[in-house]
Design a protein around this nucleic acid. Structure first.
Lengths: 103, 103
DNA sequence: TGAACGTATGAGCAGACGTGCAGATGATGC
DNA sequence: GCATCATCTGCACGTCTGCTCATACGTTCA
């Protein structure tokens, strides 16, 4: 029990972990990330995939950008987004697998 | 892009995944789960570990119970909690690792 | 029985969240 | 230049969330 207390990470590190999971805790954002795990897409495509306004998608992408889960490049007037790294896909896979086993 | 749309899981399955990540998206709940990943603990111990009231801990444990992330047994007047299965620990580990690499 | 302890639960509140709307920015094409 | 398109951003609104407080339940021990 004393060891359990010592083993607890600091508040800042803990908030970092919480922020990552929080980014994955919304259906719209999950749809975005799952779509991007298959191919790079622009905002309007992601709006079609998620079924919400492109404004809402843009808001969510900003959040995902801030947390470094996605990156993007400009192509003319489009902004094409992609997953930042493979860790994101791994977390997604593990989460969906976990959910699948209790359906 | 058409394939991306097809590959999107149903809303119910998606909400399930989101719920799991949401359960891991709060610092207090993360502290609880990290503590339980080391040893089984009762509510009052968890209150000490997290630094919040036992009432607050009980509320969070109820949420974690509903999502099947923890289970518990009664020992006299105590309620001793434990992680439900190894998947939870795996998700925790992957999340903390992911956070650690960007510190 | 009665008191003390550990736990669970419901109400209420402050703060955060997700979305749409309106307006602004920047790039393309006439 | 002007119109159009894709995207971004600030604001407002409704909803959800995590906590405290008060209260209730079940167990233990006099």
């Amino acid at each position: 029990m004393a060891r359990v207390l010592e083993a607890q990470p600091g508040s800042t590190q803990l908030s970092l972990v919480a922020d990552i999971f929080a980014a994955l805790s919304d259906p719209t954002r999950l749809r975005i990330l799952l779509a991007l795990s298959r191919e790079d897409l622009c905002v309007c495509d992601l709006a079609a995939v998620t079924g919400v306004s492109s404004s809402a998608v843009s808001h969510q992408l900003r959040l995902l950008r801030d947390r470094r889960l996605v990156s993007f490049r400009r192509e003319g007037k489009r902004a094409v987004y992609r997953l930042a790294d493979s860790h994101v896909a791994a977390l997604l896979a593990q989460g969906t697998q976990h959910a699948g086993e209790r359906a």
